[in-house]
Every structure is written in structure tokens, then in C-alpha cells.
């Protein structure tokens, strides 16, 4: 018999099979099939309201698909214990503004079962990653927008997740810091951590290993940034996506 970790060695990080989801009568996702191997830096692109966030929530088991199956590291989702394996950063910063940065980190660390010296060292590591060490004892309400975003990212990294799910991670972060965060994200994927992020920024999309473009709840393109540009005969990703979007629109 193989242990779970053996299975997850060969299983993809995320496997979606024919996912559909509707809120009332409004169809948000239809027929999405997608496999993301371990260690990939995967970017989800699409206009606002295209269903990116819903898809991310279904991957993680926070939301449930109306039809189709979801597997994370070989496990059928949703499952309570799988919430331990990924770090999630939502679009809103989701911080307790009455608490200090450190208290926020400690609270979420405790949710993941971290305590004592391990918690302390993880807090220092995660805060260092987003350059917040000096501001840890400041109440979060006094943080700037960018600092809140960074703290939010630090919380997602706190429990050494095997999978990072980041919804618009670099909105409101200045270019210098954004660069250092990206360097760190790439570094994390080298260690075998899978990263799934949604973004609007094209030069960030360029840095992803693979991209999925969602429009009106459908996955209309899935490939490496280079291949997407090549297939559409565009010189930039922006042009490629506009072309793809129009093509998909005509088909409908």
C-alpha cells in the first residue's frame, strides 16, 4: 500500500474535470477541464466577472461545483483536511484591523496548528519575505494599502503550503516590491510548490509557466505565454488575448 505522500508525488496539484457552477440562473462556469502539475506557476487571466475567483474557490473546496470533479494532490475535493495543504489569499485583504501585524499572523498560524517556536520562526520568515519585519508590532489599521496586501500574502505563506492560491496578489504593491515578491514566488516553485494566481497585469502573466484564459465562464485558451502569442500571431500577450477574446465571442 502506498502512503498518501507517495500518491501525491505523482498526482498533479490540481485536476478539474468538466466543472460547472451557477448562482441561481446565472451560469458562472461551464465545462472547465484543467490539470495543473506540481511546481507550476499557473496564471488565470480574464476580464472582471469572468469567473476566475469562483474557479479558484472551487479548486480549494471553499465552494462546491454543481457538476464535475475536483482533485487536489490526488484527493477528492472538497475535504476539510485538505485546507491544511494550501495557502489562500483572497482579493480582499481580510485582516483584523484592531490587531497588530504579528497578532494577525499568530492568529492564522494557530488556525493551521502552528505554535511556540515553530510559529515564531515561520512568522519571521513570512514577514521577511514581504519586508514587514519592522512593522510587525504596529496595528494593522495604520498600515498602507500595500502593506496590508503584503501582510495578507505573508499569512498565505505562513504554514508552508504545498499549493498557493493567490487572487490578484500584487494589486496595490509598488513595482520594486512587486519584483521582489515575484522573485520569491518563482523561487517557491523551484522548491516544488505549486502557485495558482489570478492577475490582470500582462507583464506578470508573461512570467507564468502556463496561462489559462477565462471568458464568460469558459476556458478559451490554455498554453504557455509564448505559444499563445505564436498561435494568434500577436507580438504581445495583450494583443493575443484581445484576438482570442474576439474569436471566442464570434463562436458564441
Amino acid at each position: 500500500m502506498r502512503s498518501m505522500s507517495d500518491v501525491s508525488q505523482i498526482c498533479p496539484a490540481i485536476e478539474l474535470q468538466d466543472i460547472s457552477r451557477a448562482f441561481g440562473k446565472r451560469k458562472v462556469l461551464s465545462g472547465i477541464t484543467l490539470t495543473i502539475p506540481k511546481g507550476e506557476l499557473f496564471g488565470l487571466l480574464g476580464p472582471s466577472g469572468s469567473g476566475k475567483t469562483t474557479l479558484v474557490k472551487i479548486m480549494t473546496g471553499i465552494d462546491r461545483a454543481d457538476s464535475g470533479t475536483v482533485h487536489m494532490l490526488g484527493e477528492t475535493m472538497p475535504q476539510l483536511k485538505m485546507l491544511q495543504t494550501f495557502g489562500y489569499m483572497a482579493q480582499s485583504d481580510a485582516l483584523y484591523n484592531e490587531l497588530t501585524g504579528k497578532q494577525n499572523l499568530a492568529f492564522f498560524g494557530a488556525m493551521f496548528g502552528l505554535k511556540g517556536r515553530a510559529l515564531e520562526s515561520r512568522i519571521q520568515y513570512a514577514a521577511g519575505l514581504v519586508s514587514l519585519n519592522e512593522h510587525l508590532n504596529v496595528q494593522t489599521s495604520a498600515y498602507s494599502g500595500g502593506m496590508k496586501r503584503r501582510l495578507s500574502l505573508a499569512i498565505a505563506l505562513l504554514h508552508e503550503p504545498k499549493l498557493l492560491v493567490l487572487d490578484e496578489p500584487t494589486v496595490g504593491i509598488d513595482p520594486v516590491l512587486r519584483k521582489s515578491i515575484w522573485r520569491e514566488l518563482v523561487h517557491l516553485t523551484k522548491q516544488g510548490i505549486t502557485i495558482i494566481l489570478t492577475t490582470h497585469v500582462m507583464d506578470e502573466a508573461e512570467k507564468c509557466d502556463r496561462l489559462g484564459l477565462i471568458q464568460n465562464g469558459k476556458l478559451i485558451a490554455l498554453n504557455t505565454p509564448e505559444a499563445i502569442k505564436l498561435n494568434t500571431g500577436s507580438s504581445t500577450l495583450e494583443d493575443a488575448f484581445i484576438a482570442l477574446g474576439e474569436r471566442a465571442g464570434e463562436r458564441e
Partner: peptide, 14 residues
């Protein structure tokens, strides 16, 4: 409304 419940529910808490 602040989104912390969503984040809390993305942890293994029951």
C-alpha cells in the same frame, strides 16, 4: 464583510 470569515474558512477550522 471584511473577508476575514472567508479567510478563516480557508483554514482547517471546523
Amino acid at each position: 464583510t471584511s473577508g476575514t470569515l472567508e479567510r478563516l474558512l480557508a483554514t482547517p477550522i471546523r
